[in-house]
Design a protein around this nucleic acid. Structure first.
Length: 213
DNA sequence: ACGAGGATGCTCT
DNA sequence: GAGCATCCTCGTG
């Protein structure tokens, strides 16, 4: 690898309570290797967990069906499957949002990546978001960072932990403690009181929805 | 600076 | 047909 980031995160990392995964994903690096070989890398600074018994989770409707012995259907079936897959879906008919499937066996869940700080490939990110002036606006929101990193529907369902994956996460090499803050999740109407949003306090690339402490 | 409103398409508490 | 895990533009001050 190099001095910045360490080993690729494994499926084990994602195979636990999504709330813990969401917190643990802060400070990790999201890497997209383009077909050209160019690497786009951003450090994750804001996440949200979605999980079991969570009215805001896309899997919520399916949970009752599955509990009754049925099969999960539709886009959220992915959330019941193995952890470490990408869950990418279209929001408001306009924006692709990137999640990592997470959770204990048989329990649905995912972690939404809401904001990140560009680390490598910034010039390419600017090309992908040509109207942006401030560097922060490149990746300080869930719909923005997918554009900047070239992530889209083509990644839905792909493994982030498989050998040869073009899209994956790596652990940071330094293990300095992070200043993590918690809040309710942003932009939703159900279960707004769940404290399942995590971000680096005061970090300039946290999404502007809520002023960071 | 800030708030209102439109875009746009998929899913189905 | 309603409701979205959002972003951008265009008003007004």
């Amino acid at each position: 690898m190099n001095d910045l980031f360490g080993p690729k995160l494994t499926a084990n990392f994602f195979a636990r309570d999504p709330v813990r995964v969401a917190r643990a994903m802060l400070g990790t690096f999201l890497v997209h290797e383009l077909p050209s070989g160019e690497r786009l890398v951003a450090r994750i600074v804001e996440t949200e967990a979605y999980g079991k018994d969570d009215p805001a989770c896309h899997a919520f409707g399916n949970e009752k069906r599955v509990a009754a012995g049925g099969q999960a259907t539709g886009r959220s079936a992915l959330l019941f499957g193995p952890p470490g897959l990408a869950y990418v879906y279209l929001n408001y008919g306009v924006h692709w949002l990137f999640n990592v499937v997470a959770g204990r066996k048989g329990e649905p869940g995912a972690v939404l990546v809401r904001a990140a700080e560009p680390v490598l490939g910034v010039e390419r990110m600017r090309q992908l978001r040509p109207k942006v002036r401030r560097r922060e606006d490149l990746t300080n929101g869930p719909g923005k960072l997918t554009v900047a990193l070239g992530i889209g529907s083509q990644h839905n369902g792909l493994s982030l932990t498989a050998r040869g994956a073009a899209l994956y996460l790596t652990a940071p090499n330094d293990s300095r403690p992070l200043r993590v803050a918690t809040s309710g999740r942003v932009g939703i109407t159900k279960a707004v009181d769940f404290p399942w949003r995590f971000f680096l306090a005061g970090h300039p690339f946290v999404s502007p929805a809520i002023v960071p402490g």
